[in-house]
């Protein structure tokens, strides 16, 4: 077996192990003209874990997600996604990386000229050779997962804000990516609808083994995702319950301020943090 192929096989084997680093940000920097957006940002997302990025508007949270998906290129630093250095890949090469990445945009970014079915199945209809009846089954399955099966033939404009976010989640999970990135998935939603979106994030993490990065400035949602887990009841029904301490440690918080990391740790550490900026953010 050629050396390159052996190395690649070894790398794949490492990435398949629980707790493998699936996203690595290493001293990443980005500036637009004179405005520094990210300054020496480093963090790692482990397989099956959740990284919650908090911060005020303009602190660089969404930009980090765009760098991971290759929608933006960092000025400096190294970014690894599933063992690939995305900072060195061109747009065509990024397509392969994106096959395992799902991004949920701030406002959903649904295709407004397509129905819910076409939106959710977009990647499968357009970019795969999967038979149509299989795609339809998958679309119905994921829409059932987010509780929107009855809206399958509606246009996005006929949905409420919360439903649109859930369709966006369904679209991102339809092709079974192992990493999901949520960009302010609950911003602008009422607390009850936001909880249904949080529940989808938890279910995907705990039932589908998805590694997730949740960008938000909604503390309530951030703590809910970090401190809850999804389990199946005796009759197979889904229940969202308080997470065990081990499960809680799988969710890490990271706080950005003006493009710089000012905190990294679990929910308990964040609650106990005495930094004045973080205290003012939490209060």
């Amino acid at each position: 077996m050629p050396a390159d192929l052996t190395l690649e096989t070894d790398a794949r084997a490492v990435l398949d192990e629980p707790g493998a680093p699936v996203v690595v940000f290493d001293h990443v920097e980005l500036a637009f003209d004179d405005k520094v957006v990210l300054r020496d940002v480093s963090f790692t997302l482990l397989k099956g874990h959740t990284k919650i990025i908090l911060g005020a508007s303009g602190s660089g949270k969404s930009t980090s997600l765009k760098i991971i998906t290759g929608l933006l290129k960092a000025d400096a630093g190294v970014v690894w996604v599933n063992g690939q250095r995305v900072d060195q890949l061109n747009e065509q090469e990024m397509m392969a990386v994106r096959a395992d990445l799902g991004l949920i945009f701030q406002e959903g970014a649904l295709f407004d000229s397509l129905t819910v079915r076409e939106n959710v199945g977009y990647k499968l209809y357009e970019e795969s050779d999967m038979p149509l009846d299989e795609i339809d089954r998958r679309v119905e399955e994921v829409l059932g997962f987010v509780g929107l099966a009855e809206h399958i033939d509606k246009m996005p404009s006929a949905l409420s804000g919360g439903q649109r976010r859930r369709v966006a989640i369904a679209r991102a999970m339809a092709f079974k990516p192992r990493i999901l990135l949520y960009d302010e998935a609950t911003t602008g939603l009422d607390p009850i609808t936001a909880l249904t979106v949080d529940a989808e994030i938890i279910k995907l993490r705990d039932f589908e083994g998805v590694s997730s990065i949740v960008v938000t400035h909604q503390l309530r949602d951030a703590f809910y995702v970090a401190t809850h887990m999804a389990v199946r009841g005796e009759r197979g029904e889904v229940q969202i319950v308080r997470a065990t301490p081990e499960k809680e440690r799988e969710a890490e918080f990271l706080m950005l301020k003006d493009g710089v990391i000012v905190f990294e740790g679990d929910a308990e550490a964040l609650r106990r943090c005495t930094d004045p900026y973080i205290r003012s953010f939490l209060s």
Partner: peptide, 18 residues
């Protein structure tokens, strides 16, 4: 232009479409 300002173009790229 509408697709651009509502992030639909970025969504296309994120879904693996050029």
């Amino acid at each position: 232009g509408s697709m651009m300002v509502t992030d639909q173009i970025n969504a296309l790229r994120a879904l693996g479409t050029d």
